[in-house]
Every structure is written in structure tokens, then in C-alpha cells.
Amino acid sequence: MSNTPKILIVYTGGTIGMVKDYKTGALKAFDFSQISSKIPELQQLNCEISTISFDEAIDSSNMNVNYYIDIAQIIADNYEQFDGFVVLTGSDTMSYTSSAISFMFENLQKPVIFTGSQLPIGDLRTDAKENLITSIQIASTSENRKPVIQEVGLYFEYKLYRANRTTKINAEQFEAFASMNYPPLVVSGVHLNFNHPVLFKH
């Protein structure tokens, strides 16, 4: 892992990529190339952030296997250039999408963190900023020059779960996901607490 971790954000669609036009009340897609100006807190993270966005934002209701392949291909094409990946998708199908991606990669040795939000990024009470900032922070955390997370995870509301152990449990609460039969990999409090014994080891 380089001294300054390089993180690639892949935006596929979902609420996290929407901003409200306050004149009309309508939601429109957010330009992720402008992410640093929209979320200046990202500049406090010690990493280089690049972004790739799908040409057309994919709603959860339209997510399908072809898009799983597109996401996997983007990660594969950029695997050598980046130290970690944060994939933004709609929360309704995030468990399915992230689980599928986890089975599409063999010998993954870098973090692929899926996240999203219940409220758009520009909303006053949005969960988008915390989910995105912490996902990037987790993806850029290393020990002995190796990423701490070397698997596909799903981060939402202060917890990182193993992606293929998750299920969406609530559309109304910020705590939208659960992992019924496997403990969280990371719990975000004042510090990031990595649950080392349960992390995937090669």
C-alpha cells in the first residue's frame, strides 16, 4: 500500500448520489467529480480520491446481473492502480449486489466497501456523509503496508459487515442493515474498532 492510499469511488446510483434542487424540490444526480467541494471533510483524510460514475445512475429497482459485471469490471480494470474501492449503490439491492461481487473475485487482497444512504447527500439530516467518509477511511486503513480489510464489505450506520452475510432490515431507520450470523468487521465510534479475529485472512 502506498504512503498516501489511493481510493476509487465507484458511483452506480442510489439515494447517496442525489441532491435536492431546493427551488423545485426535485432530486437530481450529483456530480461526483465535485465531491471534494460538496464534502470538504474528505480533505482531512490522508488519501487520494478518484471517482468513476456510471453514465446513467441505476436505481435499485433496475439493478441486475449485467451491472454486477460492470462493477466487477471497473474494479478489475483499476485493481493495480488503487489501494481500495468504495462502491455506492442503492440500499434496497445493496446486500444482493455486494454479495454477488464478493463471489466474483478470487484472492481479493484489497477492500471493496459498499455503502449508500437513506437520505440524499445534501439533506440536512443526511446519513450520506458519515457513511461515505467512514467507508473511505476504512478502505484506506493499513497495517504493515497491507490493507486491514481484504474482502467485500457493506458499511452502514457505524458498522462494517461482511457483504455476503448482510440483509436489509429497515427502509425507515438509518440502521438499515443487519448481519444475523456473523459479527461486524468494524464498529465506528470515537475510533475505528477493527474486529481482527473475524476479518478474512488469506
Rank of each mutant, 00 (worst) to 15 (best):
143 E>K: 12
40 P>M: 05
56 E>D: 05
159 K>M: 10
188 S>A: 15
33 S>Y: 12
57 A>I: 00
81 Q>C: 04
70 D>W: 03
104 M>F: 06
35 I>E: 04
201 K>L: 12
169 I>G: 04
3 N>F: 11
76 A>E: 13
139 A>F: 09
134 T>M: 09
142 S>E: 11
194 F>D: 01
145 R>Y: 15
71 I>M: 01
35 I>G: 06
3 N>V: 11
129 K>L: 13
78 N>C: 04
170 N>Q: 09
179 S>N: 10
64 N>T: 12
113 I>W: 04
6 K>R: 15
178 A>T: 08
145 R>C: 11
158 Y>Q: 11
190 V>S: 14
163 A>I: 04
37 S>L: 07
166 T>Q: 08
178 A>F: 11
159 K>S: 07
22 Y>A: 00
198 V>R: 08
149 I>S: 02
89 T>W: 00
148 V>C: 02
184 P>E: 13
16 I>N: 01
85 F>E: 00
110 K>H: 09
99 S>M: 04
158 Y>H: 14
58 I>C: 05
86 V>K: 01
64 N>K: 15
194 F>A: 02
80 E>S: 10
8 L>R: 00
109 Q>R: 07
33 S>V: 08
177 F>E: 03
25 G>C: 05
140 S>H: 11
193 N>H: 14
89 T>M: 02
32 F>K: 01
171 A>R: 11
139 A>D: 11
174 F>N: 09
95 S>I: 10
168 K>M: 12
114 F>S: 03
119 L>V: 05
17 G>Y: 00
68 Y>T: 10
80 E>R: 04
163 A>Y: 07
15 T>N: 05
62 N>P: 11
164 N>E: 08
120 P>D: 06
63 M>L: 14
108 L>H: 05
1 M>W: 15
2 S>P: 09
103 F>A: 07
98 S>N: 08
141 T>F: 14
178 A>N: 13
129 K>N: 14
85 F>L: 00
171 A>S: 15
26 A>S: 12
104 M>R: 06
77 D>K: 13
177 F>K: 10
12 T>H: 03
167 T>C: 13
7 I>R: 08
27 L>D: 07
61 S>D: 10
48 E>Q: 13
50 S>K: 14
107 N>E: 10
3 N>W: 07
162 R>W: 12
25 G>D: 06
189 G>W: 09
190 V>P: 13
56 E>I: 02
103 F>I: 05
21 D>P: 08
175 E>K: 14
149 I>K: 06
163 A>Q: 09
181 N>L: 12
1 M>P: 15
35 I>L: 12
16 I>C: 05
136 I>K: 09
181 N>T: 09
117 S>K: 02
147 P>I: 05
57 A>T: 02
200 F>L: 13
140 S>V: 05
159 K>E: 10
160 L>D: 07
170 N>W: 08
200 F>Q: 14
145 R>W: 14
19 V>G: 03
87 V>R: 00
112 V>F: 06
93 T>F: 11
145 R>H: 15
161 Y>I: 02
95 S>N: 15
171 A>L: 03
93 T>K: 13
159 K>I: 00
195 N>F: 15
168 K>T: 06
38 K>H: 13
105 F>Y: 06
54 F>T: 00
23 K>W: 06
32 F>C: 02
99 S>L: 09
114 F>V: 00
75 I>K: 03
184 P>Y: 15
150 Q>V: 11
186 V>S: 01
2 S>A: 15
194 F>Q: 03
62 N>I: 00
176 A>K: 10
72 A>E: 06
201 K>H: 12
150 Q>P: 10
125 R>S: 13
